[in-house]
Amino acid sequence: MSTQSTYPGDAVFAMCCCLRLPQLFSTCVAFSLVADMGFRRGAIGNWSMSFWCICFAMTLIITIVDLYRADSLFPFFWCNISVTYACYAALICLSASIIYSITYVQFVPYGPYRDRAIAATAFSCIASVLYVIEVAGMGACYELKETFFYVHTTQALLKVLETFVAGVIFAFLSNTSLYLHQPVLEWCVAVYSICFILAAVVLLLDLAEWKYMPPVPFSIFRLVLSLLSVLLYISALVLWPLYQFSEELGGQPQRSSDEDCMDELTYNMCAWDQRLAVAVLTAVNLLVYVADLGYWARQVSVGTKDQPRDSQEDLRLLPSLPTTS
């Protein structure tokens, strides 16, 4: 099997011209518009601008590597890395668009700053759509019947969601006043960190072709990690709302009790909204971990693991052994 058939460089080059350049333009315009707002952009604007800058920088790096064909040195690893990044970029731009519009844009008075904020949100939405198209289009560029794509599997998508939701939680937890006053809340932050590290390590190992590990031990290992993560997230889902919203435990049950939330326009999310966002995201990530646990429980019960498609094809292409009469 030739390298050209499994890694169609011409198709990737065409994708760079058709998708990567609009992605660079959209993310560049988005963070430029927000940066031009000065101090009025607030913490949410800084948060959104930083993620648009990251997407722009990473897309530029990947584009340069593709244009110089340096990816041909490690085609399997690179194609999975690039499409994994596209998944994250799509989620990042989409979440930035939603959070920025809900928590900031709608409260900005009519005028040039509101127009810039709306335009930045629009370009962020366009960028997320372009990244989604790239993820879908990579399947057509690389012949999936002969090249294994880890990112196109259920386990990979679950890991991407787990790490992404944890990353958004960490963004809200940048306000250390939410948890430093309670050891129980610090435990919740430790849960988010431990589960994120475990999911990220597993994702990196899978991208590095550790998928060829023996099926049964690997499935049991992943099942144990998923079960541990589910138990940890259950504790966080119980403790975080309890100590954040229970008045008896020092929490604030109502939004009106937070003085920062009383302002008609704040350039920062008030603490109560941040607490609520972390609680909701904890529940969302717990559901993702439960789905991951169910997936690996099924793999262990069946006793098999998803085989790489290229390995299956190689077995089919092996010449038949001569038979003896």
Rank of each mutant, 00 (worst) to 15 (best):
S320G: 10
C18S: 12
S72Q: 15
A30N: 01
E162N: 15
F164Y: 13
F77N: 04
P253R: 12
F164R: 05
A35V: 00
S257K: 05
Y142L: 13
G45H: 02
S95C: 13
S177R: 14
E162T: 09
S26N: 06
G38Y: 11
L21N: 02
M58V: 11
L318M: 15
V29Q: 03
W272T: 00
P319G: 06
V302Y: 01
L91C: 03
C195H: 08
L293H: 10
L144W: 06
T324L: 14
T147K: 13
T6N: 13
K145C: 05
T176Q: 07
S325P: 00
S301W: 15
M58Y: 07
L318P: 00
Y100T: 00
A120D: 12
A200Y: 02
L237C: 14
L205T: 09
Q299V: 02
T59Q: 12
L180N: 14
W78H: 06
K211P: 00
L317A: 14
R69F: 12
A70M: 12
S256I: 04
E247F: 10
V105N: 07
P217L: 10
V12D: 09
C28H: 03
Y85T: 03
R41L: 05
V288M: 04
L286A: 03
F74W: 13
Q307I: 07
D115I: 06
I169A: 09
I197C: 13
Y68Q: 12
V288T: 03
V129T: 08
H152G: 00
V230Q: 08
Q155C: 06
Y192T: 01
G294Y: 09
S219K: 09
C87F: 14
M213R: 15
V300E: 05
Y295D: 05
Q252S: 15
G167Q: 07
A199C: 08
L249A: 07
L198M: 13
L144V: 05
G139M: 14
S301N: 11
V129R: 13
M269W: 09
L242M: 07
Y113R: 13
A14N: 13
F25C: 01
Y68H: 08
Q307K: 07
F25W: 04
A127K: 01
S325Y: 08
R275S: 13
I102S: 02
A236D: 03
G45M: 03
G303Q: 02
I44D: 02
V230R: 04
N175V: 01
L315K: 13
A57K: 12
A96H: 01
D310A: 14
S193E: 11
A90S: 04
E162L: 12
L178E: 10
T63Y: 00
V83S: 07
W52R: 15
C79Q: 11
F218S: 11
L315M: 11
L144H: 08
E247N: 04
M138H: 14
D71F: 08
A297D: 01
Y104F: 15
